[in-house]
Structures are given as C-alpha cells and as structure tokens.
C-alpha cells in the first residue's frame, strides 16, 4: 500500500517536473516570438517605416538615462570605495599597497561598473517598463493600438529597447568614472600613497580591452533589461495583481539574466584571453 502510494507520488512528481519543463518551453517560445517581432520592427525602423511616438521615446531616453544619473553615481561611488577598502586591507599585509589602484580600476571597468549599473537599471527602468506596459495591457490600450493597425512591439517595445540599449553604455562610462573616483578617495585616504602614484598605476593597469569588454557588456545588459521589462509587461494578465507580478518578474529575471550573461562573457573573455 505504502509502496503504491510512494510510487504514485513519484509519478506525480515526475508529471509536475514535466509540466514545469513544458511551461518553460512555452515561455522560451514566447521569448523567441517577441525577439523575432522586435528584429522585424528594427528592420522596419531602418526602412523608416516603424511607427512610434518620438515624444514618448524621448521620455524613455530621459527616464533611462539622465534621471538615473543620481542613483548610478551613488551606487558606483560606494562600490568603488568598498573595493579600495577591502583591497587596501588585504594588500597591506603583503606590502603591496600600491596595487590597490590596479585592483580598483580593473574590477570597476571590467566588471562592477557594468554589472552594478545594469542591476540598478533593472530595478528602476526595467520595472518601470513592465509596470507601464502591463497597465496599458490591463486598460485595453494595447488592444486599442492593435485595432489602429499598430504593432505594440513596434510602438512600445522597440523605442524602449533601443533607448535603454543606447543609454546603458553611456551610463557605464559615467559609472566607471565615479567608481574610480570612489576608489581613489578611499585608497589615498587610508594608505600611504601619493595621488600621482595612484593614478600612474591606474593608467598602467587600464588597458583599452577592459573598457571595450565593459562597454560591450553594458550594451547587452541594457538590451536584456529593457527586453525583460517589455516582455513581462506585454504578457501581463488583466487582473488587479497583474501589474505587480509583471514588475517583480521583470526585475528578478533582469538581474538574474545580467549575472548569467556576465558569466558567459567572463568565460568567453578567458577563452579568448582578453
């Protein structure tokens, strides 16, 4: 009897896994569909045939760029100084204080500025995209667009993905500057290092390839965060909880996605010896 029930449970568990896998598969299909439509819309844009509101796009550019400066600055400043602080304590043990500059600059430019900025943007802009589009979905505004013969992907998704993809590398450059500044303040403040020596080491450590890698990553992160926001916004339901659920899913998958893509980049960079 107990044998029967436990095997039955096992079958049920298997069925649950199968169902989960199938629904994942369905989600993958949905992602692929949106991606395909987005690519078509991009081509339409280059042929000058995409229809979206320029004023709307400009608002998106501002929201995802200029008005994110404050929080991006704050977070990257702190991350830069934390790196310097941790590095200073450890490197002091070996009498290698002056290499703090190498640590801070490479970690900031190669990893932290891009990743931290993307995480901030996911919580801020990705969430806002999801909330906005989910609200429109609930209000039938998306349906109204469709009956006017306009693809919501063209009108709502394309400008958002483009705006954030273009703004994120700019924010990344800004984040690098602020992060290096934070590191410098802490390093020179806590260690017996001269300004000139610190910036010399920094300049020496910072090869162009670190910048290129970081910028390339932030380009991908921006696209990813915007895509996640729009994706969950568009597939939102029409009930009262839908907007909240869409926002949460967008942020979670945005952040997880950024970390995964970062890991892929790390592997590729290692393989290519960049």
């Amino acid at each position: 009897m107990s044998l029967y029930s436990s095997s039955r449970e096992r079958v049920l568990a298997l069925a649950a896994i199968g169902k989960g896998a199938l629904s994942r598969f369905a989600a993958v299909k949905e992602v692929a569909t949106l991606l395909g439509e987005l690519i078509i819309a991009t081509f339409a844009l280059f042929r000058g045939r995409a229809r979206f509101d320029r004023a709307d796009t400009w608002a998106v550019v501002q929201a995802s760029g200029a008005s994110a400066l404050g929080v991006v600055a704050l977070v990257n400043l702190l991350v830069g100084s934390i790196l310097a602080f941790v590095g200073a304590i450890q490197l002091q043990k070996f009498g290698a204080e002056m290499f703090v500059a190498d640590l801070v600059s490479i970690a900031t430019v190669r990893e932290m500025a891009a990743v931290i900025t993307a995480v901030v943007l996911s919580g801020r802009t990705g969430a806002a995209f999801a909330a906005r589009i989910a609200t429109m979905q609930g209000n039938e505004e998306v349906d109204a667009l469709k009956t006017m013969g306009v693809s919501p992907v063209e009108y709502l998704v394309l400008p958002r993905v483009l705006a954030l993809t273009l703004m994120t590398p700019l924010l990344y450059v800004f984040a690098c500057g602020v992060g290096l500044l934070g590191g410098w303040v802490v390093a020179v403040g806590t260690l017996d290092l001269s300004n000139a020596l610190y910036w010399d080491r920094t300049a020496e450590a910072l090869a162009g390839r670190h910048f290129v890698l970081g910028a390339l990553k932030s380009l991908c992160f921006g696209a990813l965060v915007a895509f996640a926001g729009c994706f969950y916004g568009l597939r939102a339901g029409r009930n009262a909880a839908a907007v909240g659920e869409a926002t949460t899913s967008a942020v979670v998958s945005g952040i997880v996605g950024v970390i995964i893509v970062d890991a892929v980049f790390a592997l590729c960079a290692f393989a290519l010896d960049v």
């Binding site: 609200t135 209000n139 505004e141 109204a144």
Partner: peptide, 8 residues
C-alpha cells in the same frame, strides 16, 4: 472598448 481604452 468596454473599458474605453483611452491612452492614459
């Protein structure tokens, strides 16, 4: 539309 669906 039933809910008007004006662009907010």
């Amino acid at each position: 539309f039933q809910g008007s669906a004006l662009f907010s």
